[in-house]
Design a binder for these strands. Structure first.
Lengths: 342, 342
DNA sequence: CTGTTAGCGCATTCAA
DNA sequence: TTGAATGCGCTAACAG
């Protein structure tokens, strides 16, 4: 419970002014090597570490980044958060995290302001894009004091973002099925309010149309990302379109439910029904049968977002105007047994 | 990019002193209703929100809680984090989150100091207990300036903690199998360096011994929580102890791998092998077959941890000495088809 | 009930 | 290369 050591204590002990200690702390060049070394010794001897709070106040900017995200109990979002934290840690940033229970709720705005009140240096916005619920954010984007990077949202030219090419993912999955000769490829989509879900569906639709398929609506059922919804959706699909011979399920959790549903209806996978998922969660290789799926590297997405934030911060410090950067991460098809024609 | 509104701006605009504004902000009683109302109007008119940083500096304490955790890509830890965030949000706290990539690594100490440098009001330590790697923490525990609550670690009398009764969970799972007449109940454990893993194993062992079973070692294989390890462990177990007729797999991910392995070796579940998992991840109801498992309410655990932290903070403010609190959350057996004798 | 003074710990600006 | 003065935005302690 001993009182915290401050810069003054170090200064007194080292026989210099607080200012000199500050210079050493910030690796300023204008300190003699000798003084620097001495001060450093005193610092480690006293176990001093500077108050980030005082530093933030006097600089008007902290070493903390804000993160707004949601649904971290799912594999994807949690991986992105891990990527964000790792890169932030490498760059010396701490993280203040806000979780939205529901991407639509207006707490997003409140969360954002709380981050601002804490002087965060920048923000990573990793909440699923749904409709136009973020209009308020876009509106103030241009005269925002801090940089912000968006993850997995509909790209906008004037913003920095990192996103997975979900449309390509949908194409890869569907093309893989079409190439093997499957003729009636159904889809179990994510909640279509989500931009990501719509993009994956679009990929499926494009391949179908390029192959001259019509009458797609009967082959499409909407889920909500959960295994339970995948189960129900598969039952619906089998009933509505018994001729379906392959299904692209838009995430692995739903695919798990879908596999159980299909199996329970006497469809053996892949003999009587091919299935492809999306995400490549670690468990998907152990589904029965092992699941063909689309891998997206969300860890990289998170890391990249923080790197971009850092770039913008550096640019601003140098008075340059950090242009909006965009990164698009390509997904990759992982072929396992669930989709293979025997 | 307009300059931020400060308390002075509000004071000037309202024709009062900054101190009065401060009183209104903090809901102090000693302000006339009329002044209060007027100041509040000016505040919302100017869109003022106080700087948390300045507040933290002047009070020597922030409205931020620190969280140190790891492995949030797994269901359990991420649920706990969600619980922590929700309760923190309810109580008006922000969260600074540090993730350890590996519970053993020493970055834990660094992370802790970073939190201290940011003046966090308290810390939730939610890193899996492994060996004695946290000796340094325990040593300074007594004269720590801030309260700390531990999640899912070996209880200590002098610390506040919230933990799931993992041993009971192991007992419930094993007892359920024994009650149905299974005679050779194997176990696939988590990594035994983890306290939680050892506790679950202990529950299994106790029931076995109470039932007069010996020769347990041949029935026990260690995994690492992943589906891949569950797969391998099940193969090992079936080879080493072909007489095994039931298995307690210590988490659901491993159970998924184990199901696939057993199925691939011609064991039909549950007819030729009963399986019980642990966690009740949402997908487990959609395994093939649906998985009997032990549900642990990690959301509550997280919430409770923050509540305890809050209690300690209040106690300290009132000069009371906040006694260490302990909460033990009881797990619950969820019976599904994978364990039912037909 | 309200205002004044002072200081939290650090970094910026200017002077030496 | 170093130091002194000043202020970041807020609140505790005291005065009125």
């Amino acid at each position: 419970m001993a009182k915290e050591v401050t810069i003054k204590d170090v200064a007194r002990e080292a026989g210099v002014s607080p200012m000199t200690v500050s210079r050493v702390l910030n690796n300023r060049p204008d300190v003699s090597a000798k003084t620097r070394k001495h001060v450093q010794q005193v610092i480690s001897h006293l176990g001093y570490s500077p108050s980030e709070v005082a530093r933030s106040l006097s600089q008007g900017r902290s070493n903390t980044l804000g993160v707004v995200t949601s649904a971290i109990e799912y594999y994807g979002p949690s991986r992105a958060l891990v990527g964000i934290e790792r890169r932030a840690n490498e760059l010396g940033f701490s993280l203040m995290v806000k979780l939205l229970h529901n991407p639509l709720e207006s707490r997003g705005e409140q969360a954002f302001h709380e981050l601002m009140a804490n002087q965060v240096a920048g923000v990573v916005w990793a909440v699923a894009e749904m409709g136009s619920q973020r209009q308020w954010l876009y509106e103030q984007l241009s005269d925002l004091a801090i940089p912000i990077v968006f993850i997995n949202m509909a790209p906008r030219l004037d913003t920095s973002f990192v996103t997975v090419n979900n449309r390509l993912g949908g194409r890869l999955a569907t093309e893989h099925l079409a190439d093997q000769g499957y003729e009636h490829i159904g889809i179990i989509t994510g909640p279509l309010a989500w931009w990501e879900a719509r993009e994956r569906e679009l990929g499926w639709r494009e391949i179908q149309q390029e192959g001259g398929r019509n009458d797609l609506e009967v082959l499409k059922v909407e889920g909500d990302w959960t295994a339970a919804s995948g189960y129900r959706a598969m039952l619906t699909l089998l009933e509505r379109a018994p001729h379906v011979d392959a299904v692209f399920v838009c995430n692995d959790s739903m695919a798990q439910g879908a596999l159980q549903a299909a199996t329970s209806r006497g469809r053996s996978i892949p003999a009587n029904l091919a299935v492809v998922g999306f995400d490549d969660i670690p468990e998907s290789a152990y589904f029965i049968p092992p699941l063909t799926t689309v891998r997206q590297d969300l860890l990289s997405v998170g890391r990249q977002a923080v790197s971009q934030l850092h770039d913008q911060l550096v640019a601003r410090k140098n008075q340059e105007n950090g242009l909006a950067q965009a990164t698009i991460v390509e997904p990759q098809l992982i072929v396992r047994r669930s989709s293979l024609k025997e």
